[in-house]
Simulated scan of single mutants.
Amino acid sequence: MNWLLVIIGAMVGAPLRYLTDRAVQLRHDTVFPWGTLVVNVTGSLVLGLLAGATSAGHASPQLQLLIGTGLCGALTTYSTFSYETLRLIETGAGFYAAANVVASVTAGLGAAFAGVSFAEAVWPR
């Protein structure tokens, strides 16, 4: 039944990713992929929170499958990040491509770290 938890999480994460990306991108008149950055950083934060809760014994393996693998796996998108960065380079927007790489990696790792730190503060071991 673990596969069912992953499917259910992905059924929520995939449309949430698409709708969030579109909503964010419509608000910004730029070639910078703000929508993808938002979903990736949000997913990193959620996954960090979940990892911290799990390590403190406050989240089950089933919740890890539902939220971590299913929802976050479908919400976040490394392939789209890579493709959009490549397209920025191909269209001569090298500054935006570099900014996308730096912002995505820095903010994603920072969000994951913040999520783990917050969870550990709320649920100490």
Rank of each mutant, 00 (worst) to 15 (best):
H58E: 08
L47I: 11
C72I: 09
A103F: 01
A74N: 05
A59M: 04
S79N: 12
F81C: 12
A59Y: 03
G57C: 02
V46R: 05
G110Q: 01
L65N: 03
A107H: 05
V46E: 01
I89T: 13
N40K: 08
Y83K: 05
Y96R: 07
L86P: 10
T54I: 07
T85E: 13
S55E: 11
T85G: 12
L66G: 00
G110I: 00
I89L: 14
V46Y: 13
G43P: 10
G52L: 10
T54V: 09
L75V: 04
I67C: 03
T69V: 15
S55Y: 03
T76K: 08
L86V: 14
T77W: 03
A103I: 06
L71F: 15
E90K: 12
A97E: 01
Q62M: 03
L63W: 07
V39M: 11
L47S: 02
E84K: 04
T77V: 14
F95V: 11
R87N: 13
A74K: 00
L63A: 12
C72L: 11
T42H: 08
A97K: 09
L45Y: 09
V101N: 08
V38I: 11
A74F: 09
G108D: 02
F95T: 10
T106V: 15
S79I: 15
T85W: 14
A99D: 00
E90G: 05
G115N: 06
H58F: 14
G108M: 08
T54Y: 15
A51F: 05
L65I: 10
E84S: 09
G110A: 01
L63E: 12
V41K: 07
N100H: 13
T54R: 08
A59T: 08
G108R: 01
A107C: 15
L75Q: 02
T80F: 15
F81S: 09
S60K: 05
S82P: 07
T106N: 04
V39A: 05
G68F: 14
L86K: 14
T42K: 09
V105E: 13
L71T: 01
A51G: 07
A112S: 02
S60M: 03
G73H: 09
V105D: 06
L50Q: 02
Y78T: 05
S44I: 07
I67Q: 03
V102R: 08
V46M: 11
S104N: 15
Y78E: 06
G73Y: 10
V101F: 15
T54C: 01
L88H: 09
T91H: 14
L88S: 05
G108P: 13
A59Q: 03
I67L: 03
L47K: 03
L88C: 12
A103V: 05
Q64P: 01
Q64K: 11
F81P: 06
V41D: 08
F95A: 10
G70M: 07
Y83T: 03
G70F: 09
V101R: 08
A107W: 12
T42D: 03
I67G: 02
T42F: 10
G94R: 14
L75G: 06
V39T: 08
A56Y: 01
S55Q: 04
A99C: 06
V46F: 14
I67D: 01
S44L: 08
A59I: 02
H58V: 04
A74L: 02
V101L: 15
V102Q: 10
R87A: 10
R87L: 15
G110C: 04
A97Q: 06
R87H: 14
L50F: 03
G43V: 04
